[in-house]
Design a protein around this nucleic acid. Sequence first.
DNA 1: GACTCTAACGAGACTACGTGTCAATAGCAA
DNA 2: TTGCTATTGACACGTAGTCTCGTTAGAGTC
Lengths: 141, 141
Amino acid sequence: MSQVSPDAIERLLSRRGYRLTAPRRNLLEVMAGLGDHFVAEGIVSAAPEVGRATVFRTLRLLQDLGVVCQVVLDDGTLAYRLAPEEHHHHVLCVECGAAEDFSSPALESVLREVEESTGFTVEAHRLELYGRCSVCRASDH
Amino acid sequence: MSQVSPDAIERLLSRRGYRLTAPRRNLLEVMAGLGDHFVAEGIVSAAPEVGRATVFRTLRLLQDLGVVCQVVLDDGTLAYRLAPEEHHHHVLCVECGAAEDFSSPALESVLREVEESTGFTVEAHRLELYGRCSVCRASDH
DNA sequence: GACTCTAACGAGACTACGTGTCAATAGCAA
DNA sequence: TTGCTATTGACACGTAGTCTCGTTAGAGTC
Ligand SMILES: [Mn+2]
Ligand SMILES: [Mn+2]
Ligand SMILES: [Zn+2]
Ligand SMILES: [Zn+2]
């Protein structure tokens, strides 16, 4: 359950009938290079030759295709991440920014529980965890 | 586990040494009147006599005091809600906007599970559920 | 009730982030 | 190669929230 490669995404794009343009290739490289997760503004400045609007358009397209997902940081900032298509969530290190995906079958039963007690039908959810990764914990006293 | 009254919040404010100003009273009334949850801009226009900066300052203060909490809507928009001090989460109706609080002990075991498999220490989290309330489900075909 | 100290306020400029428009460009299928 | 049109970039615009700073008004004290 790790990042999808830029190459695989390019193939997905043309398979779905989207054009494989230079800006798109460019942005995919940049995103892969920015690491674990990145904010839109980071892409804009890492790819100054690509238009601002194109960055946001591309982010939306990749989200629709399911290869990029949103990550809500602990302070509420919206970030993005290259990630697998399956439904999953994130654990984020508040110290170094490391991110990891996880999926949790046990969460499903939490949802059923809430449906019972509230009468709602739950159709979607967001779950983000914040904490400290093992590396950061080790390097602190 | 329902909304805290404006009165109770006013008492909390002075108990903590904050001044009970006209704008603050005003905003508390407005928030209570806006219902389930509300966006900052909604408060700004519902209380035109209060300065924009004061609205945001007050929202932050009330969050620090724990009587207002953030609600992330399904489209990512940030909203707020008068709510109990205990830790809890939200179920939101995507059709009518109804919101309800819930807390889930079972979620704790999900967190422990993730800590084991990732090596992270989880210190905080966000969970928001989106779906449809019983009223909206009943009124649809 | 008046005095004082300073927390809190409002006006308005400003920044950050994202969207809309539209003429120009460049994939890509024929 | 050619032609169609999806996609692009420049730039103007919109919206959400922040900052500054001179002014105001809580609230404790006399
Ligand atoms: Mn994800
Ligand atoms: Mn809440
Ligand atoms: Zn870390
Ligand atoms: Zn509803």
